[in-house]
Write a protein that binds this DNA or RNA. Structure first.
Lengths: 148, 148
DNA sequence: GAAATTGCGCAACTTGGTTTCAGTAAGAGG
DNA sequence: CCTCTTACTGAAACCAAGTTGCGCAATTTC
């Protein structure tokens, strides 16, 4: 597919996929490369825009396989859509356990890696498995545009 | 429609609706009564189940009118669906600015009214308009069922 | 009680996401 | 290098959440 990557980058991607038990395919290479390059949670439609030739279902399945194998995590925005983020295995807080910021205007999501997930006291026998914290508003670019 | 409410309750609902500028209709009375009775965020489909004779679109619009007029607030669950909660105008934290708990098994949502919304530092010129905090897991009933 | 306004039901449409199934490519073993 | 098993991929159909447009009916206001 895309020939814009170098040999060493290809090797890194290949190794990363293989280490999780996933088969190495050109599509997975490309999508993983895309996720890592963006570095922020992207929606399915973002991926679709980046790879218009790919089937919708294939993208869904590719992203799902990443999440299942632990290569990526998913967060949901206020728009109701899942956003996927691949993370360097050595990165600090990126198994997904951190707050996110969502731009209401352009839909861009940003991982707030430096922020701790706040704790919460849930009473009455309810068991907490995890939590999701999304701050929303306007990103730098969109905030600037709205001032005009 | 339903004749299960008393006259005084009807009056309270009527006053509440009229005070926000909304027209008083039987449907709005019923749905508002339902929301207030449940007291926790419910999804559109919950309302639909409670009032099967109502048109889907009417329910969407009714709920939207409540949110717009401030009678209710909406939160999104991890299931991607909006949950609506009407609140007593005198209640403490219920304009929606509090964390929520979502049961992954039965989909029930619970307002954590006693918890403060955690603050978050968003850097880089991004403007925060609001935030949403959802803890998820299993509610008391579902947690008990899973132990079996 | 009539006019202007708003709410309601219906149908059609959009979009995110899933399922099924047949064909094809990846990787293990010879 | 070949082939066999396994899995990935693409196409079509499907489902559910949510929205839009329009004619009709109900509520308010005068």
């Amino acid at each position: 597919m895309s020939k814009t990557r170098g040999e060493s980058q290809d090797d890194a991607l290949r190794t990363r996929l293989r280490s999780t038990g996933l088969k190495v395919t050109p599509i997975r290479m490309d999508v993983l490369d895309y996720l890592l390059t963006i570095g922020q949670p992207v929606s399915h439609s973002d991926v679709q825009s980046a790879f218009p030739m790919l089937d919708r279902v294939t993208i869904y399945r590719t992203l799902a396989s990443f999440v299942k194998s632990g290569i990526a995590h998913q967060v949901q925005g206020l728009d109701g859509m899942w956003h996927f983020c691949a993370h360097d295995p050595n990165a600090s807080g990126c198994p997904g356990n951190h707050p996110h910021f969502l731009c209401l205007s352009c839909g861009k999501m940003i991982c707030l890696l430096d922020q701790r997930m706040p704790r919460v006291d849930v009473t009455g026998g309810n068991v907490v498995e995890g939590k999701q914290f999304v701050a929303y508003g306007f990103c730098q670019e969109c905030a600037a545009k709205r001032k005009d």
